[in-house]
Each structure stands twice: as C-alpha cells, then as structure tokens.
C-alpha cells in the first residue's frame, strides 16, 4: 500500500506469465553479442531480459519478456537473429494496462 521504487524483479513480479519452457520465442546469438560494442539492448529492454554476466558477456533470458519488440528494433549488430511472439497461451497476459 505504499509507493516505492521497484526492482526489476518486483516490476515483473506484478505481471502474469506463462513461460513456454521448451520454446524461446526470441533467439539471440551470443557469439554476435560478444563482439557487439554498443549493446543498446542492455538499457532499452523494458524487462531487462538482456544482462551482463560476471564475465562481461550479454546473457539473454526470455522468461520475463513483455513482447514489446524493442530489442529487435534497437539491436545494432544483428545478435537478435529471430524475433517472434510466444506460442498461443504463452507469454505475458496484461489485466489492467
């Protein structure tokens, strides 16, 4: 009942997801990301699905994807090799947006 700054996890925790465990709807080629300098996906994906791991590599996790399309349009080096919507009945379901 109070408004506070929400962490990335808390923000996604507000939403309802049905994760398609066996089928990623977005495919990211780590080898391409490894040589990518600009990496706009790291700050522009509203769900923070793209993060740097300890080794400084770009890690992609599709589970919290909000299906907006931002990564596809900002990707500078073509690391997002395939972008689709999740299969029927999977992904996020908004109730009050």
């Amino acid at each position: 009942m109070t408004i506070k700054r929400l962490s990335p996890e808390e923000l996604l925790g507000l939403d309802r997801f049905e994760v398609d465990e066996s089928n990623p709807h977005i495919i990211v080629d780590k080898a391409i990301c490894a040589t990518c300098k600009a990496r706009p996906c790291l700050v522009a994906c509203p769900a923070r699905c793209y993060r740097l791991n300890k080794e400084g590599e770009v890690n992609f996790e599709y589970a919290g994807c909000l299906e907006c399309g931002t990564c596809r349009v900002v990707c500078s080096d073509g690391g997002v090799t395939s972008w689709n919507y999740p299969r029927a009945s999977f992904g996020v379901s908004f109730r009050c947006s």
């Binding site: 700054r5 923000l11 907006c68």
Partner: peptide
C-alpha cells in the same frame, strides 16, 4: 522511469497506492 515515479511532484499524486501491473509496448 522509477525516478519519475518517485519524483516528489508525481509521488504526492500516487502515494498510498498499490502498483498492480508493469507493461511495455512500442
């Protein structure tokens, strides 16, 4: 975005509320 939400001029308007959904879209 969270800075915007917590800005005093915005916060005063939403104080006491409950965040119920987070969405994104182009």
């Amino acid at each position: 975005f969270q800075d915007y939400k917590m800005h005093p001029a915005i916060h005063a308007l939403i104080e006491g509320g409950t965040s119920v959904e987070y969405g994104a879209h182009l």
